[in-house]
């Protein structure tokens, strides 16, 4: 495929309470299979998707948080977290289960501007 586009998935919802986070992850994996340039941005409650130590046995729901660590193998190495959202939730980089790039709100906005396709979840 010669026509590589820049895709950004913007994740703004917490996991488990709604289906958005899981659906986003599935679309991300499918998009990556088509050799596109894929990045993920986490802002607002979306930051909670990356919290370490999720244990879902008690709610009888699949814990899909380990899958974020598989993204590197899919050549998705760009995971951005908005600093303001992370801090507003009392979280720091050390609380996250995968390596991310923390960016300020303006830089996140600039990155969005540079994409060919932005998908919001």
């Amino acid at each position: 495929m010669s026509d590589i586009k820049k895709f950004m998935f913007v994740n703004r919802k917490a996991p488990y309470g709604t289906i958005y986070a899981l659906e986003s992850l599935e679309v991300v994996l499918i998009t990556a299979a088509f050799d596109q340039e894929v990045s993920l941005a986490f802002m607002d409650d979306g930051v909670y998707q990356l919290k370490k130590g999720q244990q879902t046995k008690g709610i009888e729901t699949k814990n899909f948080s380990p899958t974020y660590r598989a993204l590197e193998g899919y050549d998705i190495e760009k995971l951005y977290v908005e600093k303001e959202s992370m801090e507003a939730r009392g979280l720091s980089e050390g609380d996250l289960l995968v390596d991310v790039t923390v960016l300020g709100k303006k830089e996140i906005g600039e990155l969005m501007d540079q994409q060919d396709v932005v998908l919001s979840f």
Binding site: V10, R12, K13, Y20, M112, D113, Q115, D116, V117, V118, S120, F121
Partner: peptide
């Protein structure tokens, strides 16, 4: 516009 985002 070059691109657009439909916020949820």
């Amino acid at each position: 516009n070059k691109n657009c985002q439909s916020w949820l």
